[in-house]
Design a protein around this nucleic acid. Structure first.
Lengths: 68, 68
DNA sequence: AAGCAATGTTATATATTTATAACATAAAGA
DNA sequence: TCTTTATGTTATAAATATATAACATTGCTT
């Protein structure tokens, strides 16, 4: 299961989904889906998002084992 | 454009494509395609490969600008 | 030369991400 | 209340990653 801190960093930068989406070249729905854990992004998208926040990919995305 | 050091690390670990593929749960052709830069992996696959070699994703994958 | 292991390559099918559009909901301000 | 902004949600289409199978090539070893 994928845990993400996109929303946390997005709010830290006082940014809405639309703005982040434009910065990385995807739709705002895509950002929303990622924040809600609906699917795993491509490495390219993960890379681009991490770059916006000047952090490593690992800082924003983490795979953890399912509980149940 | 995606540059990758999969092959470099794979050889360092004296491992063939088949073995690496099994460790991360994909086909050997998929590893081959990645090494030849045919497509960008999912974050999950990139994560799994980095984990096999005990390095960060950024150590193995890097996006650089196209020359021409 | 013959055989084997590793990798390249290609075609097609399947799965998943992402795009697109439309509508719903919730919060905040005028 | 009405309007606006941000986000949720859902359905469908398009794009791309990955699976699968088949065959080619290369290098090594006998």
């Amino acid at each position: 299961m994928l845990k993400t801190r996109i929303k946390e960093y997005r709010l830290k930068y006082d940014m809405n989904q639309q703005t982040l989406a434009e910065l990385v070249g995807v739709r705002r729905e895509t950002i929303g889906h990622l924040e809600r854990g609906n699917y795993n992004p491509s490495l390219k998208l993960a890379w681009d998002i991490a770059k916006v926040f000047n952090v490593s990919i690992e800082e924003i995305f983490e795979y953890v084992e399912e509980e149940k």
